[in-house]
Simulated scan of single mutants.
Amino acid sequence: MRICVVYDCLFPWTVGGAERWYRNLAERLAADGHEVTYLTLTQWDAGDAPDLPGVEVIAVGPRMDLYVGDRRKIGPPLRFGLGVFAHLLRRGRRYDVVHTASFPYFSLLAAAVTRPLGRFRISCDWHEVWSRDYWLEYLGGVGGRVGWTVQRICAWVPQTAYAFSRLHAGRLRDLGLRGDVTVLTGEYAGSLAPPPADPATTPPTVVYAGRMIPEKRVPLVVDAVAAARERVPDLRARIFGAGPEADAVRERIAELGLQDVVELPGFVAADVVDEAMRTATCVVQPSSREGYGMVVVEAAAHGAPAIVVAGDDNAAVELVDEGVNGFVAPTATGAALADAIVACHEQGDALRASTRTWFTDNGERLSLDGSLRTVAAGYAAPSARS
């Protein structure tokens, strides 16, 4: 089949869960014999153009800064949507399927507008469905209402819809999706081999790995370590990553006098993070908003339990079986996270063993391959072409 994958970012020029998903999707489809085109914005320097095996990468817009601080700009999504519109207007009949992300919306709307001419089918991934309250918080009164309305209109577009959690699948149905939504439970592309039966390192160490943006609430990790050290005096932490909240994290470490306790290595090689997870007492992810919760799976793949925080926008809780592969803190406080950290420490090898078993039992369900097979089967459904 002839498949057009549409996303405004491309891994590794931009790093994130969606970027990895679309690159893996494009390469897997090409390996399976499909003719694959990937539409994106320019992100690379001259002479460093992407070379994806079997995939034609087409930039439909210039290089642009996507964020101001921790928030998406409106200009790049509009420019990308126009580029996708122009491309599909000219070449839409080349494709059997256009597979796009819902966000940042204008590319999906471009596909919807050109579909009658191109007669392709639309597949759409809803990594997240934002609540009306979150839209208002993110963009303010007028902008938030516009964003919420655009998201709702996108849900009405005829499409084969996918979500990566029950939370966001339910929200998509509530928006008025015409048809059903398939929940893809796997995004993990690593090995499904049983995790190593290694003990946690001494002294006990908490690990965080990810971006430092407000919704990740990384300063809470520092607060939690400080509180947990009242019961586990030799507890330490390693916080990997960078972002606009990095200074706030450093300041919190200094305020609590934990300069010799909490490390901030920044972005490091993947094998360094892998080793840290493999020997961690636990991996802590205090995020308020997650569309999936990959860190829970990655932690379990290394035999480490994970701690997440209950919240209306946090789908990561769906991946934690309480007391089996980690804990869900009931509130976003240092004290609640500290209780969970202490529980991981006290349950020690027993919790690590049940985490390894959880990963072995659920690995296939959580694997990227399983989700890709589901998507490929969706392409095989009767075509929308006449």
Rank of each mutant, 00 (worst) to 15 (best):
residue 1 M to R: 12
residue 6 V to Y: 09
residue 7 Y to W: 07
residue 9 C to D: 08
residue 13 W to A: 13
residue 14 T to F: 07
residue 31 A to M: 03
residue 31 A to D: 12
residue 43 Q to A: 07
residue 50 P to S: 09
residue 65 D to C: 09
residue 77 P to W: 03
residue 105 Y to A: 02
residue 110 A to K: 06
residue 110 A to G: 05
residue 117 L to E: 01
residue 120 F to A: 04
residue 132 R to Y: 05
residue 134 Y to M: 12
residue 136 L to K: 14
residue 137 E to R: 15
residue 137 E to I: 02
residue 150 V to N: 03
residue 154 C to G: 05
residue 154 C to Q: 00
residue 155 A to R: 04
residue 161 A to C: 00
residue 163 A to V: 00
residue 167 L to Y: 03
residue 174 D to Q: 15
residue 182 T to K: 07
residue 191 S to L: 01
residue 200 A to W: 07
residue 204 P to F: 13
residue 210 G to P: 11
residue 213 I to A: 12
residue 214 P to M: 11
residue 215 E to H: 15
residue 219 P to V: 11
residue 220 L to V: 10
residue 221 V to G: 12
residue 227 A to Y: 04
residue 229 R to N: 02
residue 266 G to Q: 09
residue 281 T to D: 13
residue 285 Q to E: 08
residue 286 P to W: 06
residue 288 S to Y: 05
residue 290 E to G: 08
residue 292 Y to V: 07
residue 297 V to Q: 00
residue 298 E to Q: 14
residue 308 V to R: 04
residue 317 V to D: 02
residue 327 F to N: 06
residue 329 A to P: 00
residue 333 T to C: 01
residue 334 G to F: 01
residue 342 V to P: 08
residue 344 C to I: 15
residue 356 R to K: 01
residue 358 W to L: 07
residue 360 T to G: 10
residue 360 T to R: 14
residue 361 D to C: 01
residue 363 G to S: 01
residue 365 R to C: 01
residue 368 L to E: 03
residue 371 S to G: 10
residue 372 L to K: 04
residue 372 L to F: 15
residue 384 A to E: 14
